[in-house]
Design a protein around this nucleic acid. Sequence first.
DNA 1: CTGAAAGCGCTTACAG
DNA 2: CTGAAAGCGCTTACAG
Lengths: 349, 349
Amino acid sequence: MVSAQRATIQDVAVLSGLSICTVSRALRNLPNVSEKAHRKVAEAAEKLGYKASPAASRLAGGNTGSVAIIAPTATAWFFAQTVEAAEEMFADAGHDTVLISLRNKAEVRSRVFGDLAALRQRVDGVLLLNVELDAAEIGALAASGLAVASVGMSGVPWDNVGIDDEQAAWEATSHLLEMGHWDLAVLAGRDLGGHSVHTSRRRLDGFSRALAEHDLEVHPDLVISAGSSIEDGRRAMTELIANRALPSAVFAECDETAFGALMALREHGLSAPKDVSVIGIDDHPMSWFLGLSTVSQPVADQGAFAANLLCERLQNPEQDHAPTNHFLDTKLIERKTTRRKRRTDKNHD
Amino acid sequence: MVSAQRATIQDVAVLSGLSICTVSRALRNLPNVSEKAHRKVAEAAEKLGYKASPAASRLAGGNTGSVAIIAPTATAWFFAQTVEAAEEMFADAGHDTVLISLRNKAEVRSRVFGDLAALRQRVDGVLLLNVELDAAEIGALAASGLAVASVGMSGVPWDNVGIDDEQAAWEATSHLLEMGHWDLAVLAGRDLGGHSVHTSRRRLDGFSRALAEHDLEVHPDLVISAGSSIEDGRRAMTELIANRALPSAVFAECDETAFGALMALREHGLSAPKDVSVIGIDDHPMSWFLGLSTVSQPVADQGAFAANLLCERLQNPEQDHAPTNHFLDTKLIERKTTRRKRRTDKNHD
DNA sequence: CTGAAAGCGCTTACAG
DNA sequence: CTGAAAGCGCTTACAG
């Protein structure tokens, strides 16, 4: 069944008794192929186990059969989940998925977005995960001939799915504020040479808005550029503890940094919510176990949904299509790391 | 600097005043190119921002410029870390990385390994992560023309890096045994239609050997096919609790399943080490926080090392090369979820 | 050391 | 509805 040498379109043409170009058209379900021819071709191709050579197809002006997933990092829980869900979607649709991790490095970031033509040579479409783009980059991407979809990047001229990050952060922050905390720190995402993770920026906005509604200002010293890993959170919280009086509550932009924060507290003989209230965003599988208060979001769903949208773009490239934006639901989950600020609490009173 | 239309080898030839084929040779550092020609070509290519079209290159008999990473799943912590480390290596060496997750499904597994010729069309090499292969598959892979390297697959006819899984499991199990536990359950990896995750099989071997050394037999009811995620561990432990008297200790093949086991215990009002001792393998960043006893292993290192080995194979394809195997160090870390079995312990005495 | 020619396996106008 | 021909951008023998 699997021959040593792969069957070519030529073989299919011979076996089906039709010309190469009819075969080509039939295989791609193009118009102007009789039903009979279509059937013959399908049979021959099936029998030969024929699959078009992606290289030849690409070179002749067709498609590569690949899509790229571009993520700030591939190790964070959110990205690993999203990537796998998207990869599944792509594989089932017959696309290979090329993984590009920006590795949280500005240099890698600019290398990737600085040569979209090279990218276009290798893939037909791109799924962007929480990448912060400037206007020039958005324009270049739109003009690149690449199909594009994204996760966590609302306001962009292509299909996007995510959560309302500003709102989710607002909820988390408001939860803290309503419990009487007013001295808040935020563990934010890392900045990549002026380009942060997109969701991080939005979450910072939500944080600020909640504070503003309580007539509070964001204190720059309390906006810590952390990242998205457990280690990042641990480092950021350690820094916070070392450099100044502890804030009364901490909003971590994702659960993993919150975990790290919890670890750092323990290393210093402190704990949540006794010494400081801590809340995250995600509802990571460990959060329940650690009693972490958080704002839950569907994760794999976002990857699968966005991947699906991209597949549709790939299938109907000509058809002009108004970009859609989809916000999935989030929910505040109050657990044990947040509590009302008390007169007896250690600091600030 | 970035032209609308990509420069072709033709453009480089014209600019450098040389023929296309000299340019081709110069660019690939092939012999029989004068130093002067080489310099001219390099200059012209640089100026034009020229990069060979991977599709054309592949079609003409060259390489695709891509490698695939094949993993049982992409979401588990170990795999996410390994994949990113490998991807970094590949990117720096100029290879695109195609991610293929088997999604823990036998069907996906056989689709991938059943058509190696199709894979060869898309990538030059493959990095296998903990994939259990049978003799026929190993033979097919070796004959496929693909460069191969792997993580966690010792005994294979290509370069491999990993830990001594049998030994690591033996250490973890012996630790339990030496503390007086004799009624042990193991939370094993999932089986994919007869093919388990390779490391899982080896770890099961180590578990058995440790038991045998204590004149104990492996009780089939206590070998739970779990998987590698937190959810998997939670499910497996819940099953264990529901179906029979609790064993006195549990060896989880990885830390994440151990986390899940800890969660299940808590859900049933139980805890480690009071009601059952629990040990894992990995030393996940959360393990310290949860006090989980475990056997640590370097993770990103394995991915980077194996990827590097694959890059070397890709660079020197002709050169025949005896496969190497590299075991990285592991270390037993005793924390708080394991303790000596006491007369006062709830069960079995 | 260098170049002209053929060919890799497709797709795309263009005739029929 | 169908096919002959050109061409995509490279690499690979083969001459020189």
